[in-house]
Every structure is written in structure tokens, then in C-alpha cells.
Design a binder for these strands. Structure first.
Lengths: 173, 173
DNA sequence: CGTGAAACATTAGCGGC
DNA sequence: GCCGCTAATGTTTCACG
């Protein structure tokens, strides 16, 4: 995906859309003092260029019964390969040699509780953001998925007590 | 904001909208085998009930020159009050007694680099998600904002090497 | 919940700067 | 190249059965 030229008008469109992704093209055009057609052409170009990755509705996790948010630091085994039968995700054939990192990443994709996962610098290898109903659910996830995983050797969890700030918007202005 | 009754149809609407927030009401109605008007009524009800917090466009931070993502753990001073002149955010009058936590939270809201902040369990008090252009920018933010803040006594940073998974969607099905 | 009609929004083609 | 017009098509919205 080639880099894409962007001028000040494109940036203003992006700033508007990342705050309210459902504004009509007309409304946006009006706010940036442009007529609807060039405005829409710019938006389509930004979508096709991958600058706009998508549009989503943000939901209130509390109201949906997902009241617990945890950040889990994970350290992985670095030597050897995962044991047979360990690879829950996709069912690789037993002769395929995979690393612990590959095995863990594949598992992460299959766990709905994990809403984000980054490979990190520092003592721990991965940081997981985990959304669950309550402690019982978290405990189950820990025992049955994370601690049960053959590549995981250590985890350290912190729980969110309160969200002070949370935005999907990126600071572009 | 009172709790709101939700049936299986509401949940399906939410699942669709948190994956694609720009689908037309007609398209959604079709997918859940309902006509447009009751579908729209449900969506409006979920919006007004606060289950749908908003709609946003998700942008590619890399393509916007924000290539560095850091998680910063912060520990705060617990005794005493912030020094005069310390409260950059809002300019409280000098006689107003505020806690270090209040002072820090107010500052966080004013820092555009901080895209998320949670109060956390564990040794450290807060976890910040920080988006910046590069190390130079991060260094500047650290020196001039975080470490300079009168309520901050300790920070521990980890950088994201790679994003394995990242979704704003909450696991509702 | 569904129907239908009015108001509104999207989008492709074309001419002009 | 990028803007803005127009006109056809598609979508939202609301009163009513």
C-alpha cells in the first residue's frame, strides 16, 4: 500500500471523520467549505489508500455486561517448539515446524476476550488487553486458555479500576 | 443512564454496527430480516440508551506519521498537594485544594499524545497509551510533560514492536 | 411491525478553471 | 490536475394502518 499524498483539507476531513464517522458527505463538505463531489472523492481516495481503515460503532462495554478490563503481560518460551496438539488455531499438520511466537499469535486471534495484543519491548513479550464479564470469567480464561497454552511461561495481570481517558482518534492536528 | 432491555435482535444489530458503522439502515435491516423502520427505531433506542456511544472512522496511525506506540506506567505522589502553578489544565485558583490524582487526571486530558489512560491495580497507579511520531517526540513528551509533572514520581515505559491484534469491537456473541 | 411518500444524500458524467 | 454542477438513483424518516 503505497504512501499517499495528503494536504490540509484531507487532514481536516480525517479529523472530522475520526470524531464522528457517520456524518453525511454533505455535512462534511459544508464544514470544510467544499462542494459534495470533491469532498466525496477525497474521502474515497483516503479509504482506498488505507488511511481510513474502516468505520465502527463504539459500544458501552459496561452496558453489555463486560464490566472487567484487564491488561495481561505475557512472557513466552523461547526455545523448542510447541508440543503436538497444542496448536488449537487452524490445526497445523504435526510435521509443520512452528515457533512459540507463531503458536501464541495464532491462539490470540481465536480468543474473543483478547481485544488487543502487542509484541512489546521490556521483560515481558506481549501485552494483552482483555475484556470479560467478571472475575469468574477472567479466572476461567486464565486457567483454561492463557496458562494452559504451551508457549506461555509467565503472566502478570493488572486490572483497570477506572477509565480516565479513551479515544480511538489519533492526534493529527 | 438507566439500564436498557436488549433482545437477540438488538445484539445482532450491535454486532453488525461495531464491525461496520457505516452500513445503511436498509442493509442492516436486510441482514437481520426486518424492514427498515423497526430496525432504525432499535438503532435510535440503542443510541439514546447509551449502548452505542458513537460512530468513528479508524485511521492508520503509521500513514499519518504516528509510527510509535508506547505504554507508560505511572506512579503518583500520594501525600501533600500539587505545588502552585503545577495545574496546567484549567488554571484552578491557588486556594482550591486538589489531590495529586485530580491534578494528574486533568493534565492527561490536555495531552493529545495520550490516547488512553486507566487507573490500575498493582504497583503502578496509571497506565497510559501514548501515540507519537518517533523517539524524539516521545522523549520531548517525557521530559517536558510527564516527568515534569509535580504529581508523578515514577514511570516505566514499554514500546509496541508490532500489533498482533487490535479491535474496538467488544465480544458480545 | 410494515407500508408508502416526502425529504434528503450519494454518486457518475461533464464542462470549466 | 482539481473543482463544482446537474440529474438519476438510493436512503432516511415519519405518519398511519
Amino acid at each position: 500500500m503505497a504512501d499517499i499524498e495528503m494536504d490540509a483539507i484531507d487532514r481536516r476531513i480525517l479529523a472530522i471523520l475520526q470524531e464522528n464517522g457517520r456524518l453525511s458527505n454533505q455535512e462534511i463538505a459544508e464544514r470544510i467549505s467544499l462542494s459534495p463531489s470533491p469532498c466525496l472523492r477525497r474521502i474515497r481516495r483516503l479509504e482506498e489508500g488505507g488511511v481510513i481503515c474502516g468505520y465502527v460503532a463504539l459500544l458501552d462495554a459496561q452496558k453489555l455486561g463486560l464490566g472487567l478490563l484487564a491488561y495481561v503481560n505475557v512472557r513466552l518460551e523461547k526455545r523448542g517448539v510447541p508440543l503436538a496438539g497444542a496448536n488449537q488455531a487452524g490445526g497445523n499438520p504435526p510435521w509443520a515446524r512452528i515457533t512459540h511466537a507463531e503458536c501464541f499469535r495464532a491462539s490470540v486471534q481465536t480468543w474473543p476476550e483478547v481485544v488487543a495484543c502487542h509484541a512489546m519491548t521490556g521483560e515481558m513479550d506481549y501485552l494483552l488487553r482483555v475484556r470479560v464479564e467478571d472475575m469468574a470469567h477472567f479466572s476461567r480464561f486464565m486457567q483454561e486458555q492463557l496458562l494452559h497454552h504451551p508457549s506461555v511461561i509467565d503472566v502478570k495481570t493488572s486490572f483497570s479500576l477506572e477509565t480516565i481517558k479513551e479515544t480511538t482518534a489519533v492526534p493529527i492536528l
